[in-house]
């Protein structure tokens, strides 16, 4: 039986899940769809972005949704030399923790620069937004991804001067 050539076939398993957000995380995605970013104020006054449902110190429910800026500072980053399926780009880019203006915690997102040499901790970056969904009577452009209430509504961050 050792003379048998073993067969190999491609296999794809796909689950089209949707996840319910609840009101706090829902507010974050609603704001993204509307083209801005919100966090939540914690018991110690810090603004947590993306918002947490429960206070990281006291575990109390958090309720005060706060708007923050859509630009901020790279706190740390990693260069992705070879992008994989599901990554935001099919070219090299950086994943970065970005502390948005007015926020006290950093948020993970992609930074679109051509080379790792253009990345540094402390650099200023700004969100590059996808376009707002056109109204019912407006023309829909072919192949354009509109904002829908998803983290990818921010296509990526770019160096602040490049926006």
């Amino acid at each position: 039986m050792s003379d048998v050539e073993v067969m190999i076939a491609p296999n794809v398993i796909e689950y089209p899940f949707r996840r319910t957000t609840g009101p706090v995380i829902g507010a974050f995605f609603t704001a993204l769809r509307e083209g801005f970013v919100v966090g939540v104020r914690g018991s110690d006054g810090r603004v947590i972005v993306p918002p947490a449902e429960y206070d990281p110190v006291t575990a109390e429910e958090l309720t005060e949704i706060v708007e923050v800026g859509d630009a901020g500072e790279v706190v740390s980053w990693a260069w992705v030399a070879e992008s994989l399926d599901g990554h935001p780009f099919d070219r090299p880019f950086a994943f970065a923790l970005v502390k948005l203006d007015g926020a006290d915690t950093p948020m993970l997102h992609a930074v679109d620069v051509a080379a790792a040499e253009q990345m540094r901790t402390g650099m200023r970056v700004a969100a590059r937004w996808r376009p707002a969904r056109p109204g019912a009577d407006d023309e829909v452009a072919e192949g354009v991804r509109y904002r829908e209430g998803h983290i990818a509504d921010i296509e990526c961050f770019v160096p602040e001067g490049d926006r």
Binding site: M7, E14, Y15, A27, T30, V38, I65, G149
Partner: peptide
């Protein structure tokens, strides 16, 4: 009750998001 910034009042809230899972691999018989 949540305290919302003005810009989030009166807009339809997002209640769910797409989170598809996809496993793309080779089956070795």
């Amino acid at each position: 009750e949540l305290v919302l910034p003005d810009r989030l009042r009166g807009v339809e809230p997002v209640r769910s998001i797409r989170t598809p899972a996809r496993l793309d691999y080779e089956f070795t018989a």
